[in-house]
Structure formats: C-alpha cells, structure tokens
Simulated scan of single mutants.
Amino acid sequence: MAKVALEAPTLADVVAARDRIRAYLAATPLRNYPSLDRLTGAEVWVKHDNLLPTGAFKVRGGVNLISQLDGTTRARGVIAASTGNHGQSVAFASRIFGVRATVVAPEGANPVKVEAMRDFGAEVLLQGRDYDESREHCERLAAQHGYRYIHSGDEPHLIAGVGTHTLEILEERPDIDAVIVPIGGGSGAAGAAIVAKATRPGIEVIAVQSAQAPTAHDSWREKKLVERPNTTVAEGLSTRTAFELPQRILRELLDDFVLMSDESILAAVAIMLEKTRTLVEPAGAAPLAAMLSPALGDRLRGKRVAIICSGANISPAQLRAVMAKG
C-alpha cells in the first residue's frame, strides 16, 4: 500500500498553534546586540528560544502536538527518538498533559539533555550509536507496544508549533529582511519558511547545517532524500537521513542553505557567550556562524536579520572545548 503524503501546515495552522501553546509557553525575547551588528555589518536580532523551559525551540511543537492527542492515544503513551531537544519537548509536554513518554536516545547522547528528559518524567532508553540507530529501535518499540510514535520531523503539528518562533519575530519586527535557521531534521526551518513566505514573500529564509552532517543540505540541493555521514559535535544539527515532510516544504519555500564547519560553529558559541552573555549550544550558534562567513556576510550587510538561537543545552565537555579554543 502506498504511503499517504502528510499535508504541510499553513500559516493558519501556525497561528492556531500559537494560541494553543501560549498558556504553557510565553513568547521568547527578540533582542538586538550592537556588538553583533558591528561584527556582521547587519542589524542582528537574536530570537532567544534558548530561554524556553526546555532550553530549546522544539518544545513549541511538542506542546502543540500532544495537546491535541485524544484520550485513547494518551492512554497508550508516546515514544520518540532524539539526540535530546526533541525528547525534552516530548517529555515536557507529556508531563503537562499526563501522558507516559518514552525517549530513545543514542548511547553517547549529551548528558545534560538525557538528565533533563528524565527530570521531565520520560523513560529514557540509550540505544544505538547515533540518532538514526536510536530512531530504528524506537520505531520497533512503537510497533510492538502500540505507542504513538512522534517523529522528529515528519509531523505537521510539530512543524506548525515550532513555526511560532518566526510568527513571534514578524509580529514584533515586521521589517525583518531575512531569517536564518539551524537545521538538523528541518522542522524549525520548514516552520519558519511557511510563516515568512505567507507573511511577506520577499523575506529571505536561509538554513544552516554542519558540514560534518550535511544530509538535509544535500537533500535540498539534490531535490531528493539522501543519506550522508554524521560526525558533527553539534547534535542539534545531526542526522544521517533526511525527512520527507520538512524537505518537501523546504524545496518549495527555502531561499538558500549553507554549510558551516564545526570549528566555525564552536567559534560562534564563544562569540555568543562573550558578546551577548548567552549560553548557547552549537546548533543555536550556527546561524551566527553563517552570518560571519563569506557565504552570507556580504550578501546580508546592511540588512535586518533575525537569527534563531535554537537552544542552550550545551554539555560541560562542549563548553570546555569552546573555552579552551578561546
């Protein structure tokens, strides 16, 4: 039997998600930092999703999705595979709505994120060398036990939920010229593109991923789903496989997609710490790395640019590595 294509969310879905999650998640700050303006030659506005309760943007999608599950599905429980931020999102939302949650994470997952998932009440199983091995184990468990499997990208309600970050940006600063979004699976960038293009088609939406895990980038460039090696230290940008729904949305709406080295991303973490006093994980600093690169620097000079600071869940080991380079 042919697989039924998931329907992409619309701006109306994102607006409904904003109203649905507001009782649980306040809008996050959008702040301008003159020091970043000076470094980039642009007017930089940082969307601080690192300040959400889980320290990452994905909780917007988790609350939007789990709030809509019916009683039978909630009683069965939910399961997700995650390197950390998606799992925290599912755990946080499940706790609010009284749902049993299981998260399968890689054996070497960021310990800060693993501890947080457990603190939010999820059962965390460490299985697999990377996200994709964890995902395969998760899918087997979902089939065996009848759990509601929450995919980290192929979920319209997740995409609508995370797209609320860009809705908030454009409600506060409708004069933004470009939005730069980090990508792992692509839900955040897909949500951003849906909102930006429906609000003002001339807004540029630019994605950034690690060159050490270029799956989403290469899939977008080649206009088909591909697999690539995943060796990045930025787990929020890491996957070996691409996701169909985000890629379909990005092929239609995304303006550009750039790759940054892990070295440049870690350097951007240090800059965020120094110039904005913001604790940020590597994925959350990737948009600044892109702005500072030759790939985008000249093109964005003089423009108003919003960058999504997607998460704050940096591990002590990652932070020590950043400070050692500084």
Rank of each mutant, 00 (worst) to 15 (best):
A2E: 12
V14H: 08
A17K: 09
R22F: 08
L25A: 05
L25I: 15
A26G: 10
T28I: 04
S35I: 08
L36E: 00
T40Q: 02
T40L: 01
A42W: 00
V44D: 00
W45I: 11
V46K: 03
D49M: 08
N50T: 07
L51W: 05
L51M: 04
P53H: 05
T54V: 09
G55N: 03
A56M: 09
G61N: 04
G62N: 13
S67A: 15
S67W: 11
T73E: 15
G77H: 01
G77I: 06
I79G: 03
I79Y: 01
I79A: 02
A80Q: 07
A80E: 06
G84R: 10
N85Y: 09
Q88D: 05
F92Y: 15
A93I: 13
R95W: 06
R95P: 01
R95G: 14
I96T: 09
R100D: 13
A105Y: 02
A105F: 05
P106T: 01
P106N: 06
G108M: 14
G108E: 14
A109V: 08
R118V: 02
D119E: 07
A122T: 02
E123V: 11
L125H: 04
Q127I: 08
R129N: 09
D130V: 01
E133A: 09
S134N: 03
S134L: 02
C138S: 06
R140E: 13
A143H: 10
H145Y: 14
G146H: 10
I150R: 12
G153W: 15
P156R: 13
L158N: 09
I159A: 05
V162F: 12
G163Y: 08
I169M: 15
E172D: 13
R173M: 15
A178W: 08
A178F: 12
P182W: 12
I183R: 14
A192G: 14
I194R: 02
I194D: 00
I194N: 01
V195F: 06
A198Q: 04
G202K: 02
I203A: 00
V205C: 01
Q209E: 15
A211T: 05
A213V: 05
T215E: 08
E222C: 00
K223T: 00
L225P: 03
E227M: 13
E235Y: 00
S238P: 06
R240D: 07
T241S: 12
E244P: 03
Q247R: 12
R248F: 01
I249F: 01
I249V: 15
R251T: 09
R251C: 14
R251Q: 15
L253T: 02
D256G: 08
D256L: 07
L259Q: 13
D262W: 06
D262Y: 10
I265W: 12
A267G: 11
M272E: 10
L273N: 10
R277F: 06
T278Q: 11
L279G: 08
A283C: 11
G284A: 13
A286C: 13
L288G: 03
M291H: 00
L296Q: 12
D298G: 15
L300I: 03
L300D: 02
R304E: 04
A306K: 01
A306F: 09
C309W: 05
A321Y: 04
A321F: 06
V322G: 02
M323Y: 10
K325T: 03
